[in-house]
């Protein structure tokens, strides 16, 4: 059993543009109106970087800036874990398109934005934060894997860690090989000790059993994007307490128990 504290959070998806609004939808107090998401550049990014920022960086950082203001990021200097199954699908598409020419070509901006840790790089530049970041991938289990690793880092280092989980749809023709239905990102600011900011205590353990699912239409979103596998956790956070089982490696489940702190 691993125990830690959630101090703040953010979420970005079609019809879920911030945490307070998403919490109402998740509690059933508002309908889920899944309008296409307009990925504007995060406020956090310096003006020079906004224009060049890729979809994945915009999505990840818009979730991150809900969980942590620039001021709080600079004061707390959390480490960061970015978890994504697919990275930036649009950049992969554009690069493979250019590379399929005769002769093959590439663009410098596309290439440096193509690395899986591009959102992490922009995050550290935007917040002038020298703390370590990492960028991981674990397929459909990327959210639970990222959460468990971030929890290990919180416990091992006794420092706050920001977990950002995100995935986006592929354009054609890759969408025929790998279907992601809609963009989804969440950000969880995790801490080893309870404080006045703490929203909830999270207890994590490995378990078996059927994974927790959502009611429609959110269930389509959950199934359609690896990062949206966070939804059952977000739902119990919205209702202050509860338990859920998220898909994890080797047919196991990540069992999460949420206890409110305020």
């Amino acid at each position: 059993m691993t125990t830690l504290y959630l101090d703040n959070l953010g979420v970005v998806a079609p019809g879920l543009s911030d945490w307070p609004g998403a919490a109402k939808v998740l509690r059933g107090e508002a309908d889920h109106l899944a309008e296409p998401l307009k990925l504007t550049a995060p406020e956090l990014l310096p003006a020079t970087e906004r224009r060049r920022s890729s979809d994945s960086t915009r999505l990840a950082l818009r979730a991150a800036e809900q969980a942590l203001s620039l001021e709080a990021a600079q004061r707390l200097q959390p480490a960061a874990v970015f978890s994504s199954a697919y990275g930036d699908p649009t950049i992969t598409h554009k690069l493979c398109e250019l590379l399929s020419g005769t002769p093959p070509m590439a663009s410098p901006t596309l290439f440096h934005n193509s690395v899986h840790n591009a959102p992490a790089g922009y995050w550290s530049i935007a917040t002038a934060n020298p703390m370590t970041t990492t960028s991981i991938a674990a397929g459909d289990e990327s959210f639970a894997t990222g959460l468990l690793y971030a929890a290990a880092q919180v416990v091992a280092e006794q420092r706050p860690v920001l977990l950002i989980s995100y995935d986006l749809p592929y354009p054609k023709p890759l969408s025929e090989k790998c279907e992601v239905s809609a963009p989804f990102a969440s950000a969880l600011l995790l801490s080893h000790q309870a404080s006045a900011q703490s929203i909830a205590q999270l207890s994590l353990s490995l378990d078996k059993g059927p994974e927790t699912i959502m009611d429609l239409p959110l269930e389509s979103l959950r199934r359609g994007n690896p990062a949206a596998r966070a939804l059952p956790l977000l739902a119990i956070l919205a209702s202050a307490s509860g338990e859920c089982l998220l898909p994890y490696l080797a047919e196991q489940r990540l069992h999460i128990t949420v206890t409110p702190c305020r």
């Binding site: 840790n117 960028s135 991938a137 894997t145 690793y149």
Partner: peptide
């Protein structure tokens, strides 16, 4: 993981 028949925590790290 499949080749080595290991089932503990597993992920790919991709930080260039």
């Amino acid at each position: 993981r499949r080749l080595l028949q290991l089932q503990g925590p597993g992920f790919t790290v991709s930080t260039a």
